[in-house]
Design a protein around this nucleic acid. Structure first.
Lengths: 170, 170
DNA sequence: GATATATAGTTTCAGATGAAACTTTTGGCC
DNA sequence: GGCCAAAAGTTTCATCTGAAACTATATATC
């Protein structure tokens, strides 16, 4: 004889049916896209820079000279993006490329004088934007946020190892 | 006679030259992309759903029936994305579309029976992923995070009004 | 009730994207 | 030295994306 209820497919109650607005990945995605879009617009209009291009400048300014791969690792961009950003910035003369004498597959990238100038102009603007975002947060709030983002990074690491995410070196 | 130092272009010191790794918009972007990519992979492999498609299902399940515009408003997706997601889900029979009798420009979208089934399967998976992300956070940490994201949303609102960001209705 | 303006949704087009293939060079390994 | 696997970057190709143009309908103004 057929059993009742226990073996039936469970009828999901509302607890199992997620509410998009409270779903953390969704909230992060909407927030981050909103911010990135606004920033991209500013960089584009004022400096003709895309976000990948700006990241390249920022990271070369801070850690350069670097190989393309070094850039990819530090920016979480894949090598195709880096390659394209490098090409455009070379054309514009904002970076310089040399070949590594010891390993001729590898390039050596660094900011040109003009690139350094651009970085010095863009960076304060970026910091202004960040300040605007954070106006409503107290000093301790900011420290909290920093800590919590760190924890989320760790959680995301479980989900998807960093090197599989994007910063592929091959 | 030319003045010295005071009128010269300021030489930016390191304080003005941002460090990408500490720059909030960058951190949010990397974190969010990492999570979204991982989730997109799961949805795609297990259910053949893109993220826009899943968002449509989630929001229709929770608030449906809705017009395409209603969906756009609640998901922060632009109307082109919504339109495309609608088409694919109609093809797959996961949603149904009727015309609004009172306003024949407007469509009325809702989940089909099969759509409801899919939602009931995907939602717990999504919640599992979220739980994974949050394992390292205590109950109070989670409340803090919620609050801080709310503040950031407000800050982002200053940067870029919601309706200009993406959920354009026209 | 004709004309103008706005809205819902779709289509078009030009650019962005990333996985996979490819080229070149390097580093074993025999 | 010769051969094979791996790494650095680039190119290709198929897909995704969103701004702008477009279609159809509705609303406002006269």
């Amino acid at each position: 004889m057929k059993q009742i209820s226990d073996t039936q497919a469970p009828v999901p109650d509302d607890r199992d049916l997620l509410d998009l607005e409270r779903f953390l990945p969704y909230r992060l995605s909407v927030l981050s896209n909103r911010i990135s879009t606004a920033i991209a617009r500013v960089y584009e209009q004022r400096f003709g820079l895309s976000i990948p291009e700006w990241r390249l400048i920022a990271v070369l300014g801070r850690f350069g000279p670097l190989s393309a791969n070094g850039v990819a690792e530090r920016t979480y961009m894949d090598k195709v993006r880096v390659s394209r950003a490098v090409q455009r910035l070379l054309q514009r003369g904002l970076i310089e490329r040399a070949m590594d004498g010891a390993d001729r597959r590898r390039s050596i990238l660094q900011l040109s004088a003009e690139g350094r100038t651009i970085r010095a102009e863009v960076a304060p603007l970026a910091l202004d934007i960040e300040r605007g975002l954070l106006t409503a947060l107290s000093r301790t709030d900011r420290a909290e946020l920093d800590r919590l983002l760190g924890l989320l990074d760790a959680g995301a690491g479980q989900l998807m190892p960093v090197d599989e995410a994007s910063a592929k070196s091959s």
